[in-house]
Design a binder for these strands. Structure first.
Lengths: 202, 202
DNA sequence: CTGATTTCCGAACGCTGTATGGAAATAGTA
DNA sequence: TACTATTTCCATACAGCGTTCGGAAATCAG
């Protein structure tokens, strides 16, 4: 049993080393720069040796994306829970965008490569309950009477509304506007404030 | 001179055949499925022969994206100009989303591969003035007093607000929600209506 | 018909992900 | 400790990719 754990620990350490190399590679070269052979070089393995730990390069990408979701969740957790709900919703949105700006390659990997990967393996992934954070915030806003749902525009629509906007803002920032030096933070905040206020007034 | 035009016409026809093959390939296999060698096979050329017409596979992608922008512009042009401005803005957004749903591979190519392509060649691309359509519509709304700008939330912010939301809705639809059978059209419309109304009330 | 130019391709280079079969290292057991 | 079984790891090979280069073929201009 102790020996088994020794093996498992070694296995886990190697797995993590592979994921670390993958993460560095993504940061350096972007989503297209991921290469199983380059990862193998960095962890001093042969290309074939990697297959003992991951079944394909797609699995490595999936695992790296899950690490990314954990990072996003960490950004969410830094938003104070005692903030008034409208402000909290704005801050959650800003956290989403901040994540995209701080880890643009991770963000792009998750939202432009993950889904095309999954249609092959049909497997799911762990998003660290990031959507749940949004959902609970909006739900709280509705329950406390701050947000006003109407027929055909309830919790689901509100959540999708919020998610789509911050997703669009973040995505545009790291793709089409990636080379624009201007700071968008203030504009983003103003936009989010307008959106949140549109949830308040019926 | 007549002979020159003969050559130029032949050249243009071959170029178009290459782009047609590229477009079909994208539709069949998605943004990752583009292959210069497969394009060459379909137009009965050798891989090296393609380089007489395009300097790299990146150039083919750029040209295909520009074709995509023209398609998007065509969707925009189907929106009646005599519609009241708020409804017109909603319809423009729906047209954007409709384009993404009708040509998901084109949409993904444009908004997830084009920008990573361009950082290499530093070159620009023709977006068929699609952003201009949005800008003029919002501008008209402000000028006619339907939309109410405020300090720190003027034309630019409004446009970015609108673009980001529809972009997020469209992107989520064709990536993370691509396998959800449910029809999102009604939800999208409701969301856009809420957003546009938030531009009207100060 | 001749010379210049454009068009096209065969071959090669270096890169990629992945499958296979067997060697090396490690583990459990007698 | 010695033997067997399992896990770990790699050399090799295969098929694909984008791109470059040199020269052949076709087309053009004079």
């Amino acid at each position: 049993m102790g020996e088994q754990t020794t093996r498992q620990r070694r296995q886990a350490r190697t797995r993590q080393a592979i994921l670390d190399a993958a993460r560095e590679l993504i940061v350096e070269r972007g989503p297209d720069g991921i290469s199983l052979r380059e990862i193998a070089r960095r962890v001093d393995y042969s290309p074939a040796g990697i297959y003992e730990y991951f079944g394909s390069v797609g699995e490595i990408i999936r695992a790296t994306c899950e690490e990314g979701f954990a990072l996003l969740k960490a950004e969410f957790d830094r938003v104070p829970l005692d903030l008034p709900i409208p402000e909290r919703l704005v801050e959650l949105g800003m956290a989403y965008i901040a994540f995209a700006q701080r880890f643009p390659q991770h963000f792009l990997l998750i939202f432009t490569r993950l889904s095309s990967n999954l249609q092959d393996s049909r497997a799911s992934y762990d998003d660290s309950d990031t959507y749940g954070v949004l959902q609970r915030c909006v739900q709280e806003g509705i329950a406390s009477g701050v947000f006003h749902p109407r027929p055909g525009f309830g919790l689901d629509e509100m959540c999708h509304y919020c998610w789509a906007l911050v997703h669009g803002l973040a995505m545009l920032r790291v793709t089409h506007l990636q080379h624009v030096a201007q700071h968008f933070d203030l504009m983003h905040r103003r936009i989010l404030e307008v959106q949140v206020s549109s949830l308040c007034h019926p």
